[in-house]
Amino acid sequence: MLQRLRQYALLVRLHRPVGILLLLWPTLWALWLAADGFPDPLVLLIFVAGVTLMRSAGCAINDFADRHVDGHVTRTRDRPLATGQIRPTEAVLVAMFLALIAFGLVLMTNALTVALSFVAVLLAATYPFMKRFHHLPQVHLGTAFAWGIPMAYTAQTGQMPDAMAWVLFVATILWATAYDTMYAMVDRPDDLRIGIKSSAILFAEHDRWVVGLLQLAVLGLLSLVGWQLGLGGFYFAGLGIALLLAAYQQWLIKDREPALCFRAFLNNNSFGAVIWLAIVLEVM
């Protein structure tokens, strides 16, 4: 039984919480901005738990979708479905179970947030299959990760998000596209060999430039949000630190060494945390 639970934990990546954090940071940005201070504690708890559950469900569906290719990729060949430790039907059932719990949490908010949650489920369920149809599954992932922003605004305020919330939404899509391209640079040789599509393959030798432009666009949009909302020194100091982190990530990926590209991807956790801390210091 314990061994089975361990395999389920590996399936939903509980041993690699960076994915939860990358999904969580934009949601926390939105909650603090929507509340203009500390958000409603119940709403905060719901979203922290919901993000954890939905990211875990997404991992299970992702492994189901990739069950025939993960064994051929160096980074993923030890995943439970690839090694046969978990059956495909089990992965689907785990994803459904986690998603249902998350939906139960959303029911504790309001009707508008509940309505938006159906879009979140659709995005999470379809993302893993996109790499078979086009070269920008990273944009699809970014949209899924950013959808917590309008949901956070509606849960906190009971109203549809304002214009700056949607600017934050777009910034998050671009940010996720940038860091997931770094992630895809790790797998590019294997993806080319087995025919999987990604932004890293699409951008080819221009990958670093495109990632850099995306990073600048993210910081530009976040600056627009700060200016429009009247945020001050703490916020823009945070953006300055985020700019330095983006530059560090560019340095890491300069030679396209897989291990360093993965480290650049992981560094985005610090990028998201710095922006959240800057918002907290500004609005509290």
Rank of each mutant, 00 (worst) to 15 (best):
S270F: 12
L100W: 01
V283Y: 05
I149Y: 06
A264Y: 11
H140R: 00
G50R: 04
F234K: 05
I86Y: 14
W147K: 00
F145L: 07
V210P: 07
Q215C: 00
I86D: 07
R67L: 04
W227N: 00
L244A: 05
I86R: 01
G272E: 05
Q249H: 04
H15K: 15
S198H: 06
F133H: 13
L107K: 04
R55P: 01
M1L: 05
Q228K: 00
A125L: 10
V12T: 14
F64V: 14
L116Y: 14
A184I: 09
G37W: 15
I46H: 04
V211W: 08
I253F: 05
L21V: 14
P189M: 05
Y183E: 11
K254S: 15
R77D: 08
V48R: 01
D191A: 09
P26I: 13
P161M: 13
L44Q: 08
A184S: 14
A163C: 09
A171G: 11
D255Q: 13
G50Q: 02
L277N: 00
T181D: 09
V48G: 00
T126Y: 11
A99I: 12
W175K: 02
L22R: 08
W209Y: 10
T76A: 04
L10S: 11
Y248R: 14
L100H: 00
I194M: 06
I253G: 11
Q250W: 07
Q249P: 09
L168M: 14
L53F: 02
A49V: 11
A184N: 10
F47H: 10
L239I: 03
H134Y: 12
A49T: 06
I86L: 14
L21W: 15
L231H: 01
M182I: 13
L100A: 15
V18M: 15
I275T: 09
V94R: 09
L281N: 00
F64W: 05
A204N: 15
D207M: 01
F129M: 06
L10F: 12
L122R: 08
P80S: 12
V51Y: 05
I149C: 06
L81K: 04
D180L: 02
Q3H: 08
D190M: 06
L266M: 15
W29G: 12
F118I: 07
I173C: 03
I275Q: 05
F262M: 12
T181Y: 03
K197P: 02
D162S: 08
L266I: 14
A35H: 02
Q228A: 10
H134F: 10
H134A: 07
T113A: 08
A9C: 11
V92T: 13
G220A: 13
L168G: 10
R193T: 01
A264E: 02
A111M: 08
L22V: 05
L31S: 03
A91T: 01
Q85G: 09
R79H: 11
G104T: 14
A49E: 03
